[in-house]
Design a protein around this nucleic acid. Structure first.
Lengths: 177, 177
DNA sequence: TCCACCATGTAATGCGTTACATGATTGA
DNA sequence: TCAATCATGTAACGCATTACATGGTGGA
């Protein structure tokens, strides 16, 4: 249940509207927590009902745009949650299930799917590397920046590991039994 | 929506009852796909309604134990699914959200939580390493075994990466801003 | 004027989670 | 015989997902 706190974090970094938050979830924050615009609007309404954010109509904007700001109570809640007990990550890796299934089956098109995955992860890695060149050309010294860099590096490590894994899996599937 | 197929895979490897499947989800399969016994029983009923598995009461067993077997239609469905389009993994990493939140907050107890995580991942890595020593003392040559080994190695890589990450994050949080 | 698009929202469905319940067997 | 435990469920709820809907603005 981290979506409300991911939104609070994003609003603490910078106020914004629902659609702006949605686009942030397609970029930076979305790399480790995804949300659709439907989820975001519903959750923003709850955050406001809880007194953690305030909102105001944006004049001169397209549609019924509203700007959300985090309130002191929201910052307090965010700090409380950040230090709260943290559950280990819940892994749900469909690729592993399929590899295990392949082990009890005649050959399927799984190697094509692995090739797709390989392309996907290589593209993501390239995108992260471009971000790093752009935002962290010089190693940051402030804690805030160092944390963001660390998280980006974790994303790159994940993609690299995934690429190596797909390559090895393809080799195993291609080898004679 | 991989739970039905994870169950089919497990039943294809070896028939078993709901409770046996539940205990497999606490061990081998559970390392990349988790499920509670409630989910498993509900899903087994659906698999049987779809004609993918059959079940029969186990005589002389405790309680109302039923043994489930995969049917030819179930194997066919498993093969279809294994070659089907595969979505990239959905990442939802609460730790990353908290680190990003910490970036806009005064210090919290997050470093204690990181220390907890570190212990957790070190224990999981040790457990995996014990499994590897026990099951893969000699490198397997059959595809089926090589795939299982590969998946186990992926689990170990994940834990190692996680350990390194927590250590670096603790270093960043401990350093002066 | 009218179409495309932006911004926000509603509705339906399904999986996952948690709490609780029932029947049957073993062992003290 | 009775408590503990095994095996199988039921029920309620919430988040995530998908499809669809509404209102307002800008540009052709």
């Amino acid at each position: 249940m981290s979506l409300p706190h991911a939104l609070l974090t994003s609003l603490a970094e910078r106020p914004g509207s629902g659609s702006e938050l949605a686009s942030r979830f397609d970029r930076s924050i979305g790399y480790f927590w995804q949300a659709t615009h439907q989820q975001i609007y519903r959750e923003l309404a709850r955050l406001e009902a809880s007194g953690w954010v305030s909102s105001a109509a944006v004049e001169g904007a397209r549609g019924r745009k509203r700007r959300y700001d985090i309130l002191p109570a929201g910052l307090q809640e965010l700090a409380r949650w950040t230090g709260e007990t943290l559950d280990p990550p819940a892994i749900r890796d469909e690729l592993m299930v399929r590899l295990r299934a392949q082990g009890v089956l005649e050959p399927t098109a799984l190697d094509d799917r692995l090739a797709d995955m390989l392309r996907h992860h290589r593209q993501k890695l390239e995108a992260y590397q471009a971000m790093e060149r752009r935002d962290f050309a010089i190693a940051p010294t402030r804690r805030h920046q160092r944390l963001q860099h660390l998280v980006l590096q974790a994303g790159m490590d994940f993609e690299r590991q995934r690429i190596a894994f797909c390559e090895e899996a393809l080799a195993v599937l291609g080898a004679p039994d």
